[in-house]
Design a binder for these strands. Structure first.
Lengths: 154, 154
DNA sequence: TCCAGTTAGTCAGTCTTGCTGACTAAATTG
DNA sequence: CAATTTAGTCAGCAAGACTGACTAACTGGA
C-alpha cells in the first residue's frame, strides 16, 4: 500500500502548476498542429514582451527576466524560422530593434486565440462566474506577489 | 514609446505563471539558506511523489509524468547528496525501492514549511478569506483540467 | 516447466534552455 | 577627449528533459 505522508496537502505551488502545465502543453501542442511547429514554450518570452513597433534585445531580456545572451538565443531561433526580423536602431548604432514579421504576427494571434480557447473550455466546465472570480483573484494575487517576494530578504 | 499590442490582455497562463515562479524562487532560495543548497526545484518531482515507505523508480517516473531515465537522474543526484537511499525490492529482483533518509525527511519538512510560509505571507496581503477562495477555486480548477486536456484531441 | 513476452532499470547520446565570463564597438559623460 | 557605461556577440558550461538500445528479472500460457 502506498503509505502517503499524512499531512501532505496540496501546496499552493502544485495548485498553480497543474493548470499551468496543462495549458502550456495544450496550447503549444495545438499551435504546432496549426503549422507553427517550430515555436516552443520558451519562445513565448519573446512574444509576451515584444512591442508592436519593435523592441531592443536588451529590453526584451530585461522584461523577461533573463540574460541578454539567453534572449539572443531565442530571438535568433525565431528569426531563422521567419517570425522575427531585426533592423538596426536608427538612434543607436550598437542596438538592433527586433520586430515581428507578418508570420510572427500570425503566430502571436494564434497563440492568443488558443490561450483564450483553453480558458473558455475550462470556464465551460468550471462555470463562467467561477472562472471570472478566479481570474480576478489571480490578478489581485499578482499585485501582491512582488512585495512578498521582495520582503523575502529584508 | 512602447506601442503595446492593443488587445493584449493577460492570458490565464501568465496569471498562473507569475505567482508560481515567484513561489518557486522564494521557496527554493530559502531552502538553500537553511542548508539544503543542493536541492533544486526539479527535485521536487521526487519529494512530491515519494511515499513514506518508499516507492519504485518507475512509479515515481509515472507519477511525475516523466521518463524513468529522467527520474533516475534526479534520484541519483538526491541519493548522492544523502537525501535518498535505495534498497532492493524484496518482492522483485529487478526493482529498487527509493526511500527518504532522515535528512531527506528534514528537507521535505522544510519544503512544506516554506511553502506554507509563502502562502501565508501572500494571504496576509491578499486577505485570508480571498486566499481561501482562491485555493478553493484552484482545487476545483484542478478537477476540471484533465477532462479539457483529454478533449483536446478528440 | 519452459519459453515468449513484459517490465524495471541502466547506458549512451542528444536537445533545449538557461547561465557565466570575456570580448568589441558604440554611445555618453565629466 | 578620455573614461566609463551600454548593446550585443562569442565561447563554453550545466541542468533537466528526451530517445533508443540494452540487460536482467519476472510472468503467463502452451
Amino acid at each position: 500500500m502506498a503509505t502517503t505522508f499524512p499531512d501532505r496537502q496540496r501546496t499552493l505551488g502544485s495548485l498553480l502548476r497543474l493548470p499551468y502545465q496543462a495549458m502550456q502543453d495544450t496550447v503549444y501542442g495545438a499551435l504546432a498542429e496549426r503549422g507553427f511547429d517550430d515555436i516552443r514554450a520558451a519562445h513565448s518570452a519573446v512574444f509576451r514582451h515584444i512591442d508592436a513597433d519593435g523592441t531592443r534585445l536588451t529590453v526584451l531580456a530585461e522584461r523577461a527576466g533573463m540574460t541578454k545572451q539567453s534572449m539572443a538565443y531565442l530571438v535568433d531561433a525565431l528569426s531563422q524560422a521567419g517570425y522575427l526580423a531585426t533592423t538596426p536602431d536608427p538612434h543607436d548604432g550598437r542596438a538592433r530593434r527586433v520586430r515581428l514579421t507578418r508570420r510572427g504576427e500570425q503566430a502571436m494571434t494564434a497563440l492568443l486565440e488558443l490561450s483564450a480557447d483553453f480558458e473558455q473550455r475550462l470556464a465551460a466546465r468550471l462555470g463562467v462566474a467561477r472562472m471570472k472570480r478566479l481570474r480576478t483573484l489571480l490578478e489581485e494575487l499578482a499585485t501582491v506577489v512582488e512585495p512578498v517576494r521582495a520582503a523575502d530578504t529584508p
